[in-house]
């Protein structure tokens, strides 16, 4: 690691799990610009690893150090996307931009023009601008995934944690989504950790692979 590289996440001797450890002795760093794919069979602890980094689950052992702002620094796309079905696509995407505002900007008021334009740009990039005024609950699974991605892109976080967010997307849409995410990562000098089931796709989009096997995290360098 060169001195100029910006470390965004550092895990020291971390063990993760709920009652019993799922993965132990995790010692890893995430550098700005990284796109990391986490691979492994179902139930092995991939989602728990993301949730631990997101601060939603406490590690059983060790420390998780995040060098990102506590407000808006981390974008999280859960497996079930975390969208609000009763709100429109626009409302959901604009929600991502709210964390760039002060804590004292009351949520009862709409976001300012600058944030609205950022959200519109994200929707345009992900080809969902025409759906902006539709409630999310009526969209297809693939469209909802693009909305969740647009929300995170509009948030402009330093670290994106995405749990199988490419599922239900066809090849063309995977390309659109990954292109937009890649541009956002480059523009913000941020990083992304994504849980992925398809190994070939993971190797195509990621520069690092974390493979989870026998309760250990093994790093594989892709490029």
């Amino acid at each position: 690691m060169s001195l100029l590289e910006e470390v965004l996440v550092h895990l020291h001797d971390v063990a993760i799990g709920y009652d019993v450890p799922l993965i132990e002795d995790i010692n890893i760093e995430v550098i700005a610009g990284d796109v990391i794919a986490v691979l492994g069979p179902s139930g092995i602890g991939k989602t728990t690893l993301l949730r631990t980094i997101a601060g939603l689950v406490r590690p059983l052992e060790g420390d998780v150090e995040l060098a990102v702002p506590s407000r808006g620094g981390l974008g999280y796309i859960p497996q079930r996307l975390g969208l609000i079905g009763n709100l429109t696509v626009r409302d959901n995407v604009e929600m991502g931009t709210r964390v760039s505002l002060s804590r004292w900007h009351l949520p009862f008021f709409p976001v300012p023009g600058k944030q609205r334009r950022i959200a519109e740009r994200a929707m345009e990039d992900l080809d969902i601008l025409t759906l902006a005024d539709q409630p999310v609950r009526i969209l297809s699974g693939g469209q909802q995934r693009r909305v969740a991605t647009a929300k995170t892109v509009a948030q402009r976080p330093k670290l994106v944690l995405a749990d199988e967010f490419l599922g239900e997307l066809d090849d063309d849409n995977v390309e659109i989504v990954m292109e937009t995410v890649r541009q956002a990562i480059d523009a913000q000098n941020s990083a992304m950790i994504m849980v992925e089931h398809h190994e070939e796709l993971a190797k195509e989009v990621a520069n690092r692979i974390w493979r989870i096997k026998d309760g250990r995290l093994i790093e594989e360098l892709v490029r």
Partner: peptide, 30 residues
């Protein structure tokens, strides 16, 4: 309400008021 939207909001660093007004109330609107 489902846990995922609240977890995403918490990870993003939303305040309690934002989580209530932007997530919990619209999610349970019906």
């Amino acid at each position: 309400i489902k846990n995922a939207p609240l977890e995403a909001a918490k990870a993003m660093g939303m305040t309690r008021t934002e989580k209530a007004w932007l997530v919990a109330i619209p999610e349970s609107a019906n």
